[in-house]
Design a protein around this nucleic acid. Structure first.
Lengths: 261, 261
DNA sequence: CGCACTCTTGACCGAGATCAACATTCGTGG
DNA sequence: CCACGAATGTTGATCTCGGTCAAGAGTGCG
């Protein structure tokens, strides 16, 4: 990863470091912690749609914050089947894990064009040792991902297709809402039916039929890569969605539920 | 890190805190770190088979090391279907996550009788702030669980029943081997077919048939709650099992593969 | 304008679910 | 130590959810 000084400098003068915004979602930071976070170098990089960011087996020297766009993590089995493990949106740290695990064992690719902010592991590790509370917050972040993975296991293992799709949609819109991407019960939803199929362990054809069913029941409006949820209550009900696992606190589903009324 | 036989033997001396043994699997600790770990209080507790240890919604004040026995983490859906999320063996820290997440959102129950060693969060958190490298190792531990969850998503989402079962078995025996629970290619395997079904998102009946198929092909011997793997190569092949995600280093599958030859 | 990607629809198929017995093992109290 | 009831494992019959295949319809982009 190359460090371009002008990008780093320009960033400092204007905005807050994106990690500050991220970590303050779980609680306020001290002035000292914020200052220290602001010293972290950040290299911004644009990536086009449908590009790989990280490949299985890589050992990157920096992790990235997703600043804009939608990406996904996935694995590919030997017989070339793809399992999508997570959809990532603004504020996510999709490869935070490689801060402590030597090799990454999944792929990360973009769905839309994305803006990424890379932070070198060296700096991040030093910061974590200086500021144990920041380490705790990042640790907490990776625990939250683990909780999401557990939820996906349950979703794929136990729920039938309709609830499974509804659950995926609920999770996405609540997470999008938490980072300000939802307006009027709607958000950008650029995943193709193939992406959704690979995320849910279903075939594309079946996903198509399930989405039509959800549309017919008036639970979702999905067109032009935009998702609208006209009836949050019923969607949540058939999906058995319980937002606790997302660890969003007051930015969470209660916030979304309030909107939906 | 080298795992000389005599080193392994020394880890088993009784006066060491079990967390020392656990963390030294990823690399040696300094004398100071070991001493500090040894100051951690440890409350040992016995639990019978098929008992709950932690329930969804709990906020325990201590996390535990599984000192002996087999346990599992699971979720229960609204329609009372159970998804097993992980099988836990000696050395595992099944609820480490609640060190940083306020509520636990899954259940942990025993399969066999278990011996647990509880460590209060307060002490653990203070230790992590004093010894950032120990924090890193525990963090790494939770990242490893996340990697296992990702593997399970892929297993359940993409593989068909036979490979899925084979994969589960491969993972178990390699993990068991890493903590010295495998002898002569065999280990204790106390999970019922119902446990396995709930772990793989299959019905009990189908699991039964799949296990018979694996037996018929000479890939496993499974009787009296014991598992033997007569043909590691072929089992690994049909399961597409690649042990990298377990982060076991030289205690990992290469060790097991060596045994199997 | 044309090609590639995405979505949609229909026909058919099959892996795995469900239901229902029955067999075997195990734990427990008498 | 045995008996008996509850788990657990096994087998067969039948059904169904979701997969596969194939073809066509939009849609968007170079």
């Amino acid at each position: 990863m190359k460090m371009e000084p002008e990008q780093i400098a320009s960033f400092h003068t204007t905005d807050l470091h994106p990690l500050i915004r991220k970590l303050e979602n779980s609680g306020p930071l001290t002035e000292h912690e914020r200052d220290d976070l602001n010293t972290l170098p950040l290299v911004v990089k644009q990536v086009g749609a449908r590009q790989d960011i990280v490949r299985e087996g890589d050992s990157p020297g920096a992790s990235f914050v997703l600043l804009d766009g939608v990406a996904c993590a996935f694995k590919v089995t030997e017989d070339a089947r793809r399992q999508v493990l997570a959809f990532h949106i603004r504020g996510d740290l999709p490869d935070l894990q490689c801060l402590h695990l030597p090799r990454i064992n999944f792929n990360i690719g973009t769905i839309t064009a994305c803006k990424l902010g890379f932070v070198p592991h060296e700096d991040l590790r030093r910061l974590c040792h200086r500021q144990p509370r920041i380490a705790d917050l990042l640790w907490r972040e990776s625990l939250t991902y683990a909780a999401i993975f557990r939820e996906w296991i349950t979703n794929i293992g136990q729920r039938q297709a309709l609830s499974r799709a509804a659950h995926l949609i609920c999770e996405h819109i609540v997470r999008a809402n938490a980072v300000g991407l939802v307006e009027g019960l709607a958000c950008v939803f650029p995943m193709t039916q193939e992406d959704l199929a690979d995320a849910m362990g279903l075939s594309v054809v079946h996903v198509n039929r399930i989405l039509q069913e959800l549309r017919k029941r008036g639970l979702i409006v999905l067109e032009n890569r935009r998702l609208l949820v006209p009836d949050w209550g019923r969607l949540q009900e058939i999906s058995e969605f319980d937002p606790g696992y997302l660890q969003l606190g007051c930015a969470g589903a209660r916030a979304f539920a309030r909107l939906a009324r």
